[in-house]
Design a protein around this nucleic acid. Structure first.
Length: 930
RNA sequence: GCCCAGGUGGCGGAAUCGGUAGACGCGUUGGUCUCAAACACCAAUGGGGUCACACCCGUGCCGGUUCGACUCCGGCCCUGGGUACCA
């Protein structure tokens, strides 16, 4: 009986579905383990071979943990709101829900084909009203809370209001907008409802604000920075412009410090954590006020942020961003024209242009300001190396200590003042040292870095001219999209002030609209919904939530997906706690993974979830790149038929390189017959072969239809089976490495499974081979060596070496002609997580009950089977292996040394002399040094 | 520019703590079986060298530490990913 993967895999997939084999429920008799995949966006293109890479790994972990006695939660769902479905709806008029539904069915059937052990009864979809009800509910909690710095957590807005009533803004210590005014209790109590509500928006975690966004008129929507590439939208390639719009924002900055410190508590990849740290960008320094020294401008103070307040005596100029609000106000009439030209020029340049620019640019405003320490007057410039969006948009120029300031000063002929006695060659370049003691520095002369910094901050704070300050790069997240296919924001407007709808009205469902485009007046698509008003009276918010809203909490919904009273019950959350193992791509490092941590911390503050961090361990699988194949067509053909030259001979001819469908190429050898039928104009193609074969060229490129390098997993499953696909994707290389999808070599894993099958069945006759005979010591040694390696390797997530361990074991057992049930049964359990179908089939063949393989216990490694009486020592002479000599494992170092020196080969190298030294490492190596 | 990851046969990769570099698989070559093929099986396969051994060279480059370095240290080159002229 031959291994028939088509029959076997269909049969067991049906069995698992019929018997709900992987359905999971709360079970207090077992420890829990929660394995989560980043859920996919169900695109119309279906699953490609990059998706399963991570899913296969997480499925192996899940199945392995089940065998290890854990109650494993392993769910799958869909991040089903998003732009592509909406774009399709705009083109075709079809409701995005319909497209999404179709795409999801394709995804599910493709995933079921690969034999994943998901508990499909827990599937969630972010676009399902029963799901987004809770996304909206969390939004409402965010609206109703603020960050209290004393409590160091989120507290209800009502608590803040109480503080305002009693003691005004001074009574509260809350995170709020930069420009929030101070007010007394009397002020507060005298305000009307509207005034109070507007003020409270400056404290709420989510709030509307006017902000610059990437507006894409072509898509009628706002895009995130990473959806914009080179000034055009990533999807569709439409132009994108900066536009001021009213947007909902999320006060993620309130959690900046906790997002930073939390990273130290989780087992996530270090590069990813580093990326988040840089994104949050904490800088410790000071803010300092420089008084404007020009006439009529006495009241103005320019505030700068610096991480090196100790260099303040080295300031020889001041630079503002061209967008700084006082840029024109500080400009003198003589400089007006130059400044206006510069501002206009700076505004016309994209961020990419600005970054690529190496030349120093800037313009003098004509005004001066006074250094509060030295009382020196320094000129104020505008320059686009200062960014409006970071810090205060103003920088003090210290050319001796900062290279960009040095470049600027050199270009504009400004003085470069040395401030530390250890600074070197500052006429050549800046020296940012903190060593030595200060010179030319007034009150800090002779001090060291630490003393100087403390002294200066104390001095500034005393005079209210500055203060120690922590600055973050992290900005509040924009939370609106001017599009249809997203969660409606559960807010209505009364007297231009936003209010939450009543909780009983959730979910606020998407209304039906005629077209999925912005209205004629430029409002978002929801503006088209007729009669869509809260209590038939108030305007709803017309923008929808961004893609990351629904994905920032979904792992809790899987715990209790049908719950109508809460996003998940206390009982379910208490049992499942949090994600133990999260697997997905590193491209989500600063988006999804940062927002999710933010929402989780918020939910934790509200006492709704038990952990500060939602995922204890995270692994990034590498990206699967495309691997294209090429054929080479002669530029001219005598016969009139197209002629193709094999790769190795192409340099002898004039040829044109053409992409060829990778699905008709095997190991870079073209299937010539299939190629003729591939395209009509190739039906009469002729070939110049090498060694009777047509060899294709190849390159690593992005996977795309136009490059004919897209590989659909369904085709591989059909040809080789899901078990082969699963093992091959793992065998390809380390999971975390980016790698091109390459079909060369898949036959190796397919052959392995067939060889495994032949341990059980005779090839031709189909006769059963297994017996109840007692295994030999040699056979037990193979088994236990395999158990040990398989377990060790999966624990360190080295999936590719597990596959090779299985290959070695099967090769060894074949060589030993071992067909003993006692060995094979354990091999089946070991292999089950990787190749679940073939193992189920053989498990039943051996006489076990169907479906019980998932409930089996992982074999226990017993070191006694690996014990050896002798070890074959590699013998090195001066570090080079010259001989191998076996010695008993318990032999003393001295005896081994004697044995080695007596050896013929060693004698030859010694040439009768005594060795300088002999190093004996027991059970490792011997090195004789001459 | 900065940050991160990486560089090992014809190819994908292995070497977990500083201890025999190249496991396992693909490919290639030769052979067995077959009318032939497919499958399977056997053998060889880093480079040089030899009838065969011996021996020499070899993990991006240069240097160092060590009895011993793919592994550790210093400097450099290249590739991929990220990014912020962040004061």
């Amino acid at each position: 009986m031959e291994y028939n993967h088509r029959e076997i895999e269909k049969k067991w997939q049906q069995f698992w579905e019929d018997n709900q084999t992987y359905r999971t429920d709360i079970d207090h008799n077992k420890p829990k383990y929660y394995v989560l995949d980043m859920f996919p966006y169900p695109s119309g293109a279906g699953l490609h071979v990059g998706h399963p890479l991570g899913y296969i790994a997480s499925d192996i972990i899940s199945r392995y943990k089940r065998l290890k006695g854990f109650n494993v939660l392993h769910p799958m769902g869909f991040d089903s709101f998003g732009l592509p479905a909406e774009q399709y709806a705009i083109q075709t008029g079809q409701h995005p829900a319909i497209t999404t539904e179709q795409n999801i069915s394709t995804f599910i059937s493709q995933m079921k084909n690969i034999g994943f052990s998901y508990d499909w009864s827990r599937e969630v979809r972010t676009s399902d009203p029963n799901y987004y009800k809770w996304t909206q509910w969390i939004f409402m909690q965010l609206f109703n809370h603020y960050y209290d710095k004393d409590a160091d957590k989120a507290l209800p807005i009502a608590h803040l209001v109480t503080q305002f009533e009693k003691g005004g803004s001074a009574a509260a210590n809350a995170v709020c907008d930069e420009e929030t005014p101070d007010f007394t209790a009397e002020d507060w109590n005298a305000m009307n409802e509207k005034e109070q509500q507007i003020l409270l928006l400056k404290y709420r975690f989510t709030f509307p604000e006017e902000s610059y966004v990437n507006w894409c008129p072509g898509l009628g929507t706002v895009l995130s920075n990473d959806e914009v590439k080179d000034g055009v939208s990533e999807r569709g390639g439409f132009p994108v412009e900066r536009k001021l719009m009213k947007q909902w924002a999320m006060r993620i900055t309130a959690y900046a410090d906790r997002l930073l410190t939390g990273l130290d508590t989780i087992d996530w990849p270090e590069p990813l954590k580093e990326q988040q740290r840089n994104w949050i960008g904490k800088s410790v320094g000071a803010s300092v006020k420089f008084k404007v020294a020009s006439e009529n401008k006495e009241g103005l103070n320019i505030e700068v942020f610096t991480t090196r307040v100790d260099t303040i005596y080295g300031v020889s100029f001041m630079v503002l961003a061209p967008e700084h609000e006082w840029a024109l106000e500080l400009t003198t009439p003589e400089q007006k024209e130059a400044v206006e030209t510069y501002i206009k020029w700076a505004a016309s340049r994209s961020e990419v242009d600005r970054m690529a620019e190496k030349k120093v640019t800037g313009v003098f405003t004509g005004s001066y300001c006074t250094n509060p320490l030295s009382d020196e007057k320094v000129p104020i410039f505008l320059a686009d190396y200062v960014l409006a969006g970071y810090g205060t948009g103003a920088v003090m120029g210290v050319p001796s200590g900062d290279q960009r300031d040095w470049n600027f000063a050199t270009n504009f002929g400004l003085p470069i003042i040395p401030i530390l006695d250890s600074q070197k060659d500052i006429d050549q370049q800046a020296d940012n040292t903190k060593e030595g003691t200060y010179i030319n520095s007034g009150i800090i002369n002779g001090m060291t870095y630490k003393e100087a910094t403390d002294t200066l901050i104390g001095w500034l704070e005393e005079r209210k001219l500055g203060k120690g300050k922590v600055q973050y790069r992290l900005r509040n997240a924009v939370f609106s999209r001017q599009r249809y296919w997203g969660e409606p924001v559960p807010v209505y407007f009364k007297d231009d002030v936003p209010y939450l709808i009543d909780e009983s009205e959730l979910p606020l469902e998407l209304p039906k609209i005629d077209k999925y485009l912005p209205t004629e007046t430029g409002e978002p698509p929801l503006g088209r919904a007729e009669g869509w008003k809260y209590k038939n009276e108030y305007e709803y918010e017309l923008s929808t939530m961004p893609g990351w809203a629904g994905s920032s909490w979904y792992w809790y919904r899987y715990m209790d997906p049908q719950n109508n009273d809460a996003f998940a019950s206390k009982k379910a959350i208490n049992y499942w706690q949090r994600v133990d193992f999260y697997l997905g791509g590193s491209e989500h490092a600063t988006g999804h993974l940062l927002y999710s941590r933010f929402w989780n911390k918020f939910l934790k503050d509200l006492g709704l979830v038990p952990h500060e961090e939602f995922a204890a361990k995270l692994l990034n699988q590498g990206m699967i790149q495309g691997r294209s194949n090429f054929v080479y067509r002669l530029k001219s053909s005598e016969s009139g038929h197209p002629v193709f030259v094999s790769y190795g001979l192409k340099d002898q001819y004039e040829t044109t390189k053409l992409h060829v469908d990778v699905n008709i190429v095997d190991n870079d050898i073209l299937d010539v017959a299939a190629f003729k039928n591939w395209r009509e104009d190739f039906i009469n193609a002729e070939f110049i072969l090498e060694d009777g074969k047509y060899v294709c060229g190849w390159e690593v490129e992005k996977m795309s239809k136009s490059k004919f390098n897209v590989v659909n997993p369904d085709n591989i499953v059909e040809k080789y089976g899901a078990d082969t696909l699963r093992m091959y994707e793992m065998f390809l290389g380390p999971l975390t490495d980016a790698k091109p999808w390459n079909m060369n070599g898949i036959s190796g894993t397919f052959n392995f499974l067939r060889k495994f099958w032949r341990l059980f069945y005779e090839d031709q006759s189909g006769k059963q081979k297994w017996s109840d005979a007692e295994p030999t010591a040699e056979e037990l040694k193979v088994l236990h060596r395999t158990i040990k390696r398989v377990e060790e390797d999966i624990e360190r997530l080295s999936f590719n070496t597990v596959v090779s361990t299985f290959m070695i074991a099967v090769n060894d057992l074949s060589d030993l002609k071992c067909h003993k049930k006692a060995i094979l049964q354990d091999m089946l359990i070991l292999l089950a997580p990787y190749a679940p179908h073939i193992t189920e089939e053989l498990w039943v063949a051996l006489g076990n009950e169907a479906g019980t393989l998932s409930l089996a216990s992982f074999p226990v490694f017993n070191p006694k089977y690996l014990e050896e009486s002798a070890f074959e020592y590699p013998i090195q002479i001066n570090g080079k292996v010259r001989a191998n000599i076996p010695f008993p494992v318990d032999m003393s170092k001295e005896d081994i040394e004697q044995g080695v020196l007596a050896n013929e080969t060693v004698q030859k190298w010694l040439e009768g002399k005594a060795p300088k030294k002999v190093v004996v490492v027991p059970k490792r190596i011997v090195n004789v040094v001459l």
